[in-house]
Simulated assay, not measured.
Amino acid sequence: MAKVIITQTKSTINRPSRQKLTIKALGLGRINKSVEKELTPQIQGMIKKVDHLVSVENK
């Protein structure tokens, strides 16, 4: 599987709780924190839900 680096670029303040929980499930939680994940269909869906809060780059 391909790997991606996900970086949180915006705050979750004043966002719906579903988006906050998705950010936490991705292993993020503060601005400029990055995590490396396998690009599975589940992770793709999570990224799509919060794409306005994160940036994604292929590894």
Rank of each mutant, 00 (worst) to 15 (best):
K20F: 03
P41K: 10
I47R: 08
Q19I: 01
L26I: 04
D51W: 15
S55L: 05
I43N: 07
G27P: 02
L21F: 12
R30I: 11
L26M: 01
A25K: 14
R30M: 10
T12W: 05
K10M: 02
N32E: 08
K20G: 13
R18W: 15
N14V: 07
G27V: 02
I5C: 10
Q19A: 00
T22R: 05
K49I: 14
I23Y: 00
K49F: 15
K49T: 15
E38H: 11
G27N: 03
V50F: 07
V4E: 00
L26K: 05
K33E: 10
Q44I: 10
T40Y: 08
A25H: 12
K10R: 14
P16D: 10
I6Y: 07
G27L: 04
K49A: 15
V35H: 07
S11K: 04
I23P: 00
N58V: 08
S11Y: 06
R18C: 06
I23W: 12
E57L: 03
S17G: 00
I47M: 15
T12C: 13
N58F: 10
T22K: 07
K49C: 13
M46A: 09
I43F: 10
M1S: 14
E36C: 00
G29V: 00
M1P: 14
T7A: 07
Q44T: 11
K59G: 03
M1W: 09
R18V: 12
V54D: 02
V35T: 01
N58M: 09
E57P: 03
Q8M: 05
A25M: 05
K20N: 08
V50W: 01
T9R: 15
T12Q: 07
N32W: 14
V4Q: 06
V56K: 07
K48I: 10
S34Q: 05
Q19G: 01
Q19S: 03
Q8H: 03
H52D: 03
G29T: 08
S55V: 05
K37E: 08
T12Y: 09
G27D: 02
S11W: 13
Q19C: 00
E36H: 01
M46I: 02
A2N: 11
V54L: 05
H52E: 04
G29M: 00
A2L: 08
L39V: 00
K24P: 02
L21H: 13
P16N: 11
V4C: 05
Q42G: 14
N58W: 14
V50I: 11
E36K: 08
V56Q: 01
P41V: 04
V54A: 04
G27I: 03
G45I: 05
T9W: 07
R15E: 11
D51H: 14
R30E: 12
T40V: 01
K20S: 01
E38S: 11
R18S: 14
V50Y: 07
Q42L: 14
V54S: 00
V35M: 06
I13Y: 10
V4A: 02
G45T: 06
Q44P: 11
K24F: 15
N58L: 11
K3V: 08
I5D: 04
M1H: 12
I47F: 13
S17R: 14
